[in-house]
Write a protein that binds this DNA or RNA. Structure first.
Lengths: 180, 180
DNA sequence: GTCCTTAGTTATCAGTCGATAACAACTATG
DNA sequence: CATAGTTGTTATCGACTGATAACTAAGGAC
């Protein structure tokens, strides 16, 4: 028998996955709940009924992305608990570039009072976790996050990632220095 | 005599200044042309007539911010043409935090076909200029931009800058390592 | 003073978007 | 089969927003 309906739990997860893709492209204000709904193959009002509001949908999406990043770091630290080890795990994160970019859009939208606290907490947890896992100094950790942020922004700019634009000369110089 | 009217040139500059403030807070999609107009004390249709469209207004704003950053770096390099010298000029940039944040919103909105090319060109010019001014290696320049991007994002998140939120423990560790 | 260019306004619209309400259909259980 | 709970839809609304059009008025040139 063909499964037509999903449980609310399954649908919730599917919608968050669709929202990662949609919000990564347009950001919070630049993405409609209808775009997310169409990506998931459901109607727009149903998205609202599951999450209550667009803001809650976005928050669930940012939290999901943050938790996924943390999990990848935990897994990496189990093998090599150094900044270098976690840095290599970035390879995985670049493969799921939308995850990083949706986090960036969260950071950028943090001026919105309804989003700011949740977004800052998300980033704080990441920073704390990396220090716990690696025991690295604050300075080393800052450089780690700085380079991660650069990679993320270059991804959002379509300089890095699956659908990157044709490379310009200046990009080559920059990209050559990034960890492989 | 009281000046009531401005020349188109003066008004143009005033509107770009207002747009820096407005777009820094809400980003491209999250800011209305009416918000910019009210900030400048003119009517919304007049903003559209001067710039043609919201997109052109945003592009003019991003270009202005990019040029201002470049000018600050040129001035700094005239005194101390090293990455350290340009880094110190960041103090000035943090004082005009909206300038940095509006650039970030430009990078984040680069997935929009109408904005991407201009935004990438803006970033490429910055990268190239810094290398020309300092003669630094690609790797050193990458670290320079990575830390700059981190500072910018922390500004957008209201962790850094004039209207920063009350600091959390993790923020203190991070902020202590940033260049003074 | 009159005229003409330029600065600026009000009125208005067509499209979009998040949200609500009412209804329909599937599925498990007894 | 009946019925109750859950999954999903269509219809619709009110608010908002970018853009257009038509009008008004300042101020320099002659």
């Amino acid at each position: 028998m063909v499964r037509t309906r999903l449980t609310a739990q399954e649908r919730h997860a599917q919608l968050v996955a669709a929202a990662v893709t949609a919000f990564a492209q347009g950001g919070y204000a630049g993405t409609t709940t209808d775009q997310v709904a169409r990506l998931a193959g459901v109607s727009q009002p149903y998205v609202i009924r599951i999450f209550g509001s667009k803001q809650e949908l976005f928050l669930a999406t940012v939290r999901h992305a943050g938790e996924r990043v943390q999990q990848i770091w935990r897994d990496a630290a189990a093998v090599d608990p150094t900044l270098s080890g976690l840095g290599k795990a970035y390879k995985q994160l670049l493969a799921e570039r939308d995850l990083l970019v949706v986090l960036l859009h969260g950071f950028a939208a943090a001026a919105d009072p309804g989003l700011g606290d949740a977004v800052r907490q998300c980033y704080g947890e990441q920073f704390t976790l990396v220090r716990e896992l690696t025991g690295a100094s604050a300075e080393e950790t800052r450089d780690f996050f700085a380079n991660g942020m650069l990679i993320t922004v270059l991804g959002a700019m379509r300089v890095l990632g699956p659908d990157a634009v044709p490379p310009q000369p200046w990009m080559a110089d920059l990209l050559d220095t990034l960890p492989r």
